[in-house]
Design a protein around this nucleic acid. Sequence first.
DNA 1: ACCTGAACACCGTTCAAGT
DNA 2: ACCTGAACACCGTTCAAGT
Lengths: 203, 203
Amino acid sequence: MARRSDHTREQLTELVLGEAQRLVEAEGFKALTARRVAEAVGYSPGTLYNHFKNLDDLVVQVNARTLELLDGELAGAAPTGDPQADALALALAYFAFVERHPRLWELLFEYRLGQGSELPRWFTGRIEAILARMARVLAPLFAPGDTAGVEEAVQVLWASLHGIGSLATSGKLEVVTARSAAQLARSLVVHYVGGLGAARSGE
Amino acid sequence: MARRSDHTREQLTELVLGEAQRLVEAEGFKALTARRVAEAVGYSPGTLYNHFKNLDDLVVQVNARTLELLDGELAGAAPTGDPQADALALALAYFAFVERHPRLWELLFEYRLGQGSELPRWFTGRIEAILARMARVLAPLFAPGDTAGVEEAVQVLWASLHGIGSLATSGKLEVVTARSAAQLARSLVVHYVGGLGAARSGE
DNA sequence: ACCTGAACACCGTTCAAGT
DNA sequence: ACCTGAACACCGTTCAAGT
């Protein structure tokens, strides 16, 4: 058969990404298979490979949208100038997102790409944009020009929030605690950021 | 065919777990399939299901051994009574383990069990034993009897170390930083534990 | 240029048949 | 009691054949 007139190239790509996202939200990322997506959009499995390099490529493109959603969520937490309060607001916004879209969050951060698949540069750029939000908020805690200090703190918080989200979405947090992800995040931010401030004023 | 005289039940279980571990260490958990393990031990795939409920069950049993290894690693960091130094020693021992057995660590914490598979109770008990190590080390920071405070701090550190390990083993840390997992862990422990101490002395 | 459908090389899991 | 080997219902991915 020739190209079907049902959809343009762009429309079909859009359709596929939408169905993939729906599938993940409904059943988790183990349900995201090329064959099921193909069936959901009414094309044969082979057609997907005309639009995506492979399944990992499709995943990365769904994840790009998830990153956009997450960044939008964090944009709602406007900085006030108080590092501890602002960092806490970001952390709570982060977990509001995890709670609203746990399975998209898992696809974004827990799905392991095959070893042939590197993260594209535009993808890592989006993550850096999110980290930059945290950097702006923490900057007042550090001496002007101490970008290394700010960076390290941002990365520590980023990785730590990730860990809380990872244990929470996998059900491994409930095994060990009755506390919510948000409560652990609050303790993390309050005391880590507090510790940063204390170390600096004590120098 | 009847039972083969090659191995007793216990020997075969042992053999399977050993081969599964070897396979994961060599090629990562995506290479851990029932068929490959069966071939490695010289039995048919169906035989595995006589010894394990399913592949998740096999994974959990490999993970039990990994937890044992991890606990042994942490046992080497003997407490001195200084919470910050002791917590740091535990964190560094944790990442020494992650560095030595990254793929076993991934199977333990990043492999998602199917929804039919719950973690057995003896498994969660072993995790609690590890958390108890951290609790003993942090206890001096809290008022006597404030077990809730200790617990919360332990869980925050546990989840945060997990996050650093997760990003490190998935290659998502290098995307964002040149810092090592150990360096981020050091910053986390120093300032979080420092922040805990400051909050308490400032009460 | 792009879609189909078959094909290939894999999976996890079950189970009748054998000893 | 336990092992085999075939079977079932899936996978991701490729590609000749079609339009």
